[in-house]
Design a protein around this nucleic acid. Structure first.
Length: 724
RNA sequence: GCCGGUGUAGCUCAGUGGUAGAGCAACGGUUUCGUAAACCGUAGGUCGUCGGUUCAAUCCCGACCACCGGCUCCA
């Protein structure tokens, strides 16, 4: 998968002690605010009530902001006292008191100077900063309830009494950087929620508890799907247990079949690559922090004498190098060619020092090379000439030593696939070339980011790279979208959204490759395909990858939780960096476009999503335990009948087990239900005599008895068709 | 990475400044029964790791590790 290679954020202006907002959060317009629905108003007012209560309990608290959210509301404070859930009862009590006081929310307009004087007088430094965020010309309004006054654009409910005391609940204490920028101080964030009344709050609380039961980490442990072993294997590395591996392999089977039919070919690549791979792709300078540290291979290992010799030569080389560079830069300046410009010269020696060579190191290498050339032409003074001569000698000697090799664990598959593209000569007849791989990637995620299967450090991507011509692009892109929709249907994903991220023309050449026409052309193509395919999408400005527009795929699980499972990206830059070309009809070499796509994202995250989506009750084709045959007792003829059914199903690759113990059938059913076995075949004397099978489905109860052949055929068909 | 919290048996959880319990699971028996739990028994823990305080630490203190809730980042 590709990555966004984003340069560091710009430093804050000197006038403020704080860094700017990291993400471009759109300020709500007053018009948008006035359209806030009733519940959002209520929650917004609750945030003020919370702040009122906190100030009563801790008068020295500094305030930041307190907006409503889809789940409730929060307010950010800076305070010596560390909030803990133990504080919640007294905060809630104070909030209820405030609702009973039935204070009026009163709006007032202030000038910027008045507002500034007010907050500076109170030492509310964060409020002073927030004041600075309000654009000139926008009306500055305050809201007051009781003794509490806040900078606020509203809107609010009329009175604190509109909030029902039973509808408020404090939820959690967390931390948040001021303006969401990690360079700023961390504030304490108090989360709460509010509903019209206690009944709605209770219903929400119940729903939260249900959601918690679906947590993939909990179900994964209960069902024996996967494990983490931080002590021996490392945090963020999944151990797929046999039952979880079933899910992995069923997904792979699905993807391989789907991709085969869509004309993909499969490849396999190693988990490591040399450093050159990632300097060429452009990942290393930007992405190194997210990669595992390099692996250094030193061929001189075990030869201390050679190592010492090499070190000595290196020291000499470095020393001479800086002296030569000093002279060389003076000479370059003498040609009136500023180092680092595209220019040819009378001598032709310092020509061709273009932008690409200005990257660190290359410019100096260029000068060294030219100094060697000048020496051969006899254009250097004797001292410099001798120095350069010795330098060349040392360099030659150093070349006799095997170079130190640096390897990296791959964080994405695209560079490897690019090298597969480069491995053979390509013709326009070969395109589109669709290279697919379940490639294991390794990313050094920050420790605080690890989260069950959703954020791991080793992940298996349902990856493919589609190389095509500009003319083929729309068709290829459409086919990728069709594949997404096909998967959504199989998994019963009813709600999805594609976030189409485009570039910012103002930052061409900085955040985005400087190809204005290609940007426009590809974005237009993507947009058109999205519209024509009837895809549900939103356009997000300025968030593209550096090499092309991208699409993030968000889906919502059965209980309404949102997951970003995949991204889809267009790349018109990196293939060129690897010099990838195909021979076109007109016998010229052209660079292909590349589409990165991974509809199932990573196994890890996708299975995490599926576990929560299905609450562990997988459809038959996915279920780790598809069928269990249970006998009423252990009478030999009955057990024989059961075993013959197990054998028949197993011959068709059905995952089936038998439970022939003399335990009561109620107990056996209970065991199977707890294990979430999809289909239970319950056999007793009646079934043996009639040649029937009594079917029971997980969490659906008994389905009655049917002839054996019919039951087997039904099971096989449901698996084959991947019925939900 | 940052802020806060947590760490007791495979899982869910009690508990104490004088070196630990329950239920489920596991294991061994017994149990012959028609759709969500038959009975008896056995075994299982350096109380996350390493230091410190103490006559004595699972408990108090510190560091580290991991996990949880967020922030930032992201598939």
């Amino acid at each position: 998968m590709p990555e966004d290679l984003q340069p560091q954020p710009t430093p804050p202006p000197a006038s403020t002690p704080f860094a700017e907002a990291k993400t471009d959060v759109q300020r709500k317009t007053l018009d948008q605010r006035s359209q806030m629905d009733e519940l959002m108003r209520l929650r917004h007012s609750c945030a003020h009530i919370l702040a009122t209560a906190v100030l009563r309990l801790w008068p020295d608290a500094l305030l930041d902001i307190g907006p409503p959210t889809s789940e409730g509301f929060y307010y950010d404070f800076d305070l010596q006292h560390r909030f803990s859930p133990e504080d919640f009862p007294k905060i809630e009590e104070e909030m209820r008191k405030i609702t009973k006081e039935n204070q009026v929310f009163e709006k007032s307009v202030k000038t910027r100077a008045e507002a500034l004087a007010y907050f500076e007088g109170k030492g509310q430094k964060f409020k002073v900063e927030r004041l600075g965020d309000i654009p000139e010309g926008e009306t500055i309004t305050f809201f007051q309830n009781g003794e509490f006054v806040d900078l606020c654009a509203g809107p609010h409910v009329m009175r604190t009494g509109n909030v029902k005391p039973g509808g408020i609940k404090m939820l959690k204490v967390a931390s948040a950087y001021f303006r969401g920028n990690e360079k700023n101080p961390q504030l304490q964030r108090l989360y709460g929620t509010a509903f019209k009344n206690k009944e709605e709050l209770d219903a929400w609380v119940t729903l939260q508890e249900e959601a918690k039961k679906r947590d993939h980490r909990k179900i994964g442990t209960e069902m024996g799907l996967f494990a983490f072993d931080a002590e021996y294997v490392g945090p963020g590395f999944v151990l797929w247990l046999p039952k979880g591996t079933v899910l992995v392999e069923e997904l792979e089977k699905l993807a391989k079949e789907t991709e085969f039919q869509a004309g993909y070919v499969r490849v396999k690549t190693p988990h490591l690559a040399k450093k050159k791979m990632y300097t060429t792709s452009g990942h290393l300078p930007y992405y190194a922090d997210s990669m595992f540290p390099s692996i250094e291979l030193d061929e001189l290992k075990g030869r201390p004498d050679l190592i010492a010799e090499k070190e000595g030569l290196l020291d000499r080389m470095i020393e001479m190098r800086s002296s030569i560079l000093e002279v060389g830069k003076t000479i370059a300046a003498g040609f009136e060619i500023p180092v680092g410009t595209v220019q040819s010269t009378g001598e032709g020696l310092f020509a061709g020092l273009d932008e690409a060579m200005r990257q660190k190191g290359i410019e100096e290498d260029f000068i060294l090379e030219k100094m060697t050339a000048l020496r051969k032409l006899g254009k250097l003074d004797p001292v410099t000439s001798e120095l350069v001569g010795k330098f060349d000698e040392v360099c030659t000697q150093l070349k006799k030593f095997p170079p130190r090799q640096t390897y990296y664990l791959k964080a994405m598959n695209c560079p490897h696939h690019h090298r597969i593209f480069a491995a053979e000569p390509r013709s326009y007849r070969d395109l589109p070339l669709r290279l697919a791989e379940y490639g294991m990637c390794y990313r050094y995620e920050q420790s605080g980011e690890l989260f069950g299967l959703m954020r791991v450090r080793a992940m298996n991507m349902n990856d493919a790279h589609l190389y095509c011509t500009a003319e083929q692009f729309a068709e290829e892109f459409r086919a990728v979208n069709d594949m997404y929709l096909k998967y959504f249907k199989i998994f019963g994903i009813e709600k999805y959204q594609m976030r189409f991220s485009t570039h910012d023309p103002a930052r061409l050449g900085q955040k985005f490759v400087n190809e204005p026409e290609l940007w426009k052309k590809t974005e237009d193509m993507v947009r058109q395909v999205l519209i024509e395919s009837g895809i549900n999408y939103v356009e997000v400005a300025n968030e593209a990858a550096f090499y092309g527009p991208k699409i993030d795929v968000q889906v919502w699980s059965a209980i309404g939780r949102e997951f970003t499972i995949a991204t889809n990206q267009v790349d018109f830059a990196v293939p060129a960096k690897f010099g990838l070309v195909y021979r076109d009809r007109d016998n010229t070499d052209k660079t292909p476009l590349c589409i990165h796509r991974a509809p199932l994202g990573t196994h890890e995250r996708f299975i995490g999503f599926l576990i929560e989506h299905y609450a562990g009750n997988f459809p038959l084709w996915l279920a780790p335990d598809q069928v269990r045959v249970l006998t009423l007792n252990d009478d030999p003829p009955l057990v024989e009948y059961a075993k013959s059914i197990v054998a028949e199903l197993r011959s068709h690759f059905v995952r089936v087990e038998g439970d022939y113990s003399p335990n009561p059938v109620k107990a056996k059913i209970s065991d199977a239900e707890h294990a979430k076995v999809h289909t239970m075949l319950v056999l007793g004397g009646r079934d043996l005599e009639s040649g029937n099978i009594s079917v029971r489905l997980h969490s659906k109860g008994p389905q009655g008895a049917k002839p054996r052949a019919e039951v087997v055929a039904d099971i096989l068909a449901a698996i084959r068709e991947r019925r939900g």
